[in-house]
Write a protein that binds this DNA or RNA. Structure first.
Length: 807
RNA sequence: GCCGGAGUGGCGGAAUUGGUAGACGCGCACGACUCAAAAUCGUGUUCCUUCGGGAGUGGGAGUUCGAUUCUCCCCUCCGGCACCA
């Protein structure tokens, strides 16, 4: 018996396929298209471990399957290569990050090629390539021109270890997602993108997407839209007022004090005016709040603190309008109110809000119940009380009326924050903006972007200059600020001396639109050709990690919608169907990591067991979207299966047994169905059943070839080898997917269970058309045992399913 | 606290609209081959059992001839959000 020499077979075909450029995309406009995509990786220095390719293998199977079904398939790969690790490596080893990045890309690519993933490498892209980031910069400039980008000096999340500002999405529980440091608030000049302007569309368009429901839910929660009212509370004896946001305007008669966030602008103003009696105390509190890390400040378990602003009182507008006596309420600052949510100020209704209640108890503030909903604090709806003309009516129905009554307006607010878009680091796309003092002087308005101009589009890409040191400065400026010959330039509008922006874009910039570039990767005139985009978009099937649900997948949807608005793309959403991939854990149940020393390199598996075994095993491990632990023993199952298939090729017969032929049709049907539904594990199980059965029976060459075809997306090398052995000169993946005969895929006689009083007592084989089921079922001894001497109350027969007798 | 998802043999898991629970794989046991071992092949493998059966899909109730699947309550684990007004 010959041996299954995976190494020889796989090396041979890998080379032949590459030489034939077999994976090149065939853009056949007369055929239906299918765009199947992986989330492109960050090419880290460590290379791939066996977990990485799990998703890639799945898309590879779909891609091959769709090609065999006659689709015109786009299946590309590229590199999300800007980012901190390459930069840190560069700092440590005093080499340009470009060098480390190129090396890592080469490693990754060679590892992927060993698995024979059918990527069209002619369309390879990298976010760090100037021809690519030219269009990242171009899109940013369009956003700037449309007023979606603004300059801000508000405090932002700052990671003291990475020495850069971060977006809200870059935090994980108040810590830096990358390095785990506590995040501080630091006021550094920032470029911010108004992603919140798209919040409603990001929310509403989710409904039309074919994504797993829980991922949609994550995005909905992240965006966090809530409906409520904005109401002005006048300041006593001053012509100004405090605007608050509340979801419970119905409780306004119970508002007994107010709270402003420590950063609130009015507080600054009042300190400036010198009208606060306890100025020192207030300033101390503000200072303390500032020094608290984000994680301390948002710790729910901590007791709330706050300070009353003495010398200033607010008026409860509802009580005033109703002509009630006690309308004056105190104003506090407290860090449980967040400056960036709503208006940064609240009315406190201790009777109907638990936080306000805690605070009111601590500072002995009055509690006025206005809803009859039980013992305070109670937060549910109910009949209004102590609310003058609104009494006795249901609180829910009065939200709008009461808002109107106090001249407020119904509005909505979001948990989503605008996108802090600048990083004070080297290895990213330079932000293509120029500041001209001369122009700024002429701009007398309140425009926060006064004096700022985009780099003229003809000058794109604005390439990353060489620097002496890649080290972040920590001052809020990027290393680019040190290169005066790069920084100093001319104003593109007036020609006066001007300076370049020195911050770079966040890691997420390039990945927000990269999928479009694969469609037209070498276009020098446009981001993407609109006709080509119309043909290939949207991505029909997108596979990647669930951890991107509220980062990449929100940014990319936003970026795409913007491109749609300016007419660059034809469709509103980038990714029609999304499938998340479950992690592969190490054998010890932990995440694979250098730190634990439990990493398994795919190269090693391919060397010892073969790429086909690796591919089949990773798909067989369990449900695709679930995390499973790697097992060397488990790997042997798929390996034995492939050996069995290999041996089978030597014992083909003239004809297949009828029973086996039926099993083949069943198998084709199941494998096709399962591939469409991402149920690779059961598809493989079915093929294993077939192979075992075929070993015991007679199988014809023709039928064996059909089997090879349905196995080929999973195990391309071995099936190609056997295909050639059976006198086929071409490539198996370029052949048609076999069809199944529905009649043959069905059994004539089906074995079903016979139940008596709900318990299975026997089995019976019946044809679906039979009319003798009752007589035959009762004739079985095991059944008559239980039925004799008793009256049959009911006889249920569901053809093909069950016989059920009730006595 | 809120929002998702999941709990099935020794293990990974299977079970399309409610219809024979445990497919397939791993592991294990026994047997064949072998001087022996590995590999391979074959048989068995949910638990209990007085061998008649009985119990069984996290726990408890319910609907049904019939529930892993549907309804209600509870427990545990995982993921996300979390002083969001």
């Amino acid at each position: 018996m010959r041996e299954y020499n995976h190494k020889e077979i796989e090396n041979k075909w890998r080379k032949r396929w590459t030489d034939a450029d077999i994976y090149k995309t065939k853009e056949q406009k007369d055929k239906p298209k299918f765009y199947v995509l992986d989330m492109f990786p960050y090419p880290s220095g460590a290379g791939l471990h066996v977990g990485h390719p799990k998703g890639y293998i799945a898309t590879d199977i779909i891609s091959r399957y769709k090609k065999m079904q006659g689709f015109s398939v786009l299946h590309p790969m590229g590199w999300d290569a800007f980012g901190l690790p390459a930069e840190q490596y560069a700092i440590k080893n005093k080499v340009h990050p470009r060098i480390a990045t190129d090396k890592n890309i080469a490693t990754f690519k060679s590892q992927l090629e060993k698995i024979s993933l059918n990527y069209d490498w002619n369309r390879e892209i990298s976010t760090t390539d100037p021809d690519f980031y030219k269009w990242t910069q171009w899109a940013f400039i369009q956003m700037f021109k449309k007023g979606l980008v603004y300059r801000s000096e508000e405090p932002i999340n700052w990671c003291p270890s990475c020495k850069t500002g971060l977006a809200n999405e870059d935090l994980e529980g108040g810590k830096c997602e990358r390095c785990g440091s506590d995040i501080e608030q630091k006021p550094i000049p920032q470029w911010i993108i108004k992603i919140t302007k798209y919040a409603d569309r990001l929310l509403e368009d989710l409904d039309e997407l074919d994504w797993q429901e829980h991922i949609k839910e994550l995005q909905r929660n992240w965006i966090g839209r809530s409906y409520g009212a904005e109401i002005d509370f006048p300041i006593k004896g001053k012509g100004e007022s405090i605007r608050i946001f509340t979801t419970r305007p119905d409780t306004i008669f119970g508002a007994t004090y107010m709270v402003l966030a420590p950063e609130h602008n009015l507080v600054k103003k009042w300190i400036g005016e010198g009208i606060i009696e306890n100025k020192e105390e207030i300033e101390n509190y503000i200072q303390k709040a500032k020094n608290k890390s984000e994680i301390d400040r948002t710790d729910v378990t901590k007791e709330k603190t706050g300070v009353e602003i003495k010398g200033i009182k607010a008026i409860n507008p509802a009580r005033q309008k109703a002509g009630m006596d006690d309308v004056e309420i105190p104003i506090f600052i407290a860090d449980y109110v967040l400056s960036h949510y709503g208006t940064g100020a609240i009315m406190a209704v201790p009777a109907h809000d638990e936080r306000d209640f805690d605070f009111a108890q601590k500072y002995s503030l009055p509690i006025v119940q206005v809803i009859d909903c039980g013992e305070v604090p109670c937060t549910g709806p109910g009949k209004l009380i102590n609310s003058e003309s609104f009494n006795d009516k249901n609180s829910e129905e009065l939200k709008e009326k009461i808002t109107e009554y106090v001249d407020g307006k119904m509005t909505k607010t979001y948990r989503l924050r605008d996108w802090v878009f600048a990083r004070q680091r080297y290895w990213g796309e330079p932000i293509p903006l120029i500041y001209c003092e001369n122009c700024a002087k002429k701009d007398t308005g309140t425009n926060p972007n006064a004096g700022w101009h985009p780099v003229p589009e003809k000058d794109l890409p604005l390439t990353l200059p060489e620097v002496e040191s890649y080290e972040p400065t920590g001052t809020g400026e990027s290393p680019l600020a040190g290169i005066s010959e790069w920084v100093n330039t001319k104003c593109p509008v007036c020609g006066a001396p001007a300076k370049r922006e020195t911050n770079t874009m966040p890691q997420w910039a390039g990945s927000s639109w990269y999928y479009l570039r694969y469609i037209d990767p070498h276009n020098n005139d446009e981001l993407v050709n609109k006709e080509k985009e119309k043909y290939w978009s949207p991505v029909d099937f997108y596979v990647g990690g669930a951890e991107h649900a509220t980062r990449h997948l929100i940014y990319a949807r936003f970026w795409h919608k913007f491109l749609y608005d300016i007419g660059v793309v034809n469709y509103k959403e980038p990714f029609q169907k999304l499938q998340t991939v479950g992690l592969i854990m190490a054998e010890d149940g932990r995440k694979m990591s250098k730190r634990w020393g439990n990493v398994i390199n795919p190269d090693e598996i391919i060397e010892n067991y073969g790429a086909d075994t690796l591919r089949v095993y990773e798909m067989f491990m369990g449900p695709f979207d679930q995390a499973v632990a790697w097992s060397m023993d488990g790997l042997m199952g798929p390996r034995r299966f492939l050996e069995r298939v290999f041996t089978l090729a030597e014992k083909l017969s003239e004809h297949s047994d009828e029973k086996l032929e039926k099993l083949l049709h069943k198998t084709i049907k199941k494998v096709s169905f399962d591939i469409e539904n991402m149920k690779y594990n059961t598809a493989i199980a079915q093929m294993m059943v077939f192979a075992r059965e075929a070993e015991k029976s007679n199988i014809s060459k023709n039928d064996f070839i059909k089997f090879l075809k349905i196995l080929s997306p999973f195990a391309p090398h071995i099936t190609q080898e056997l295909w050639e052995e059976l006198d086929n000169p071409d490539f198996i993946m370029e052949n048609e997917w076999p069809e199944f005969d529905e009649k043959k895929a069905k059994d004539e006689e089906i074995t079903i269970g016979v139940q008596v009083n709900g318990k299975v007592r026997a089995e019976i084989s019946l044809t679906p058309e039979t009319t003798e089921e009752k007589a035959r079922a009762l004739a079985i001894e095991a059944v008559s045992e239980f039925v004799k001497d008793k009256e049959i109350k009911r006889f249920i027969y569901v053809p093909g399913k069950i016989v059920s007798i009730v006595v």
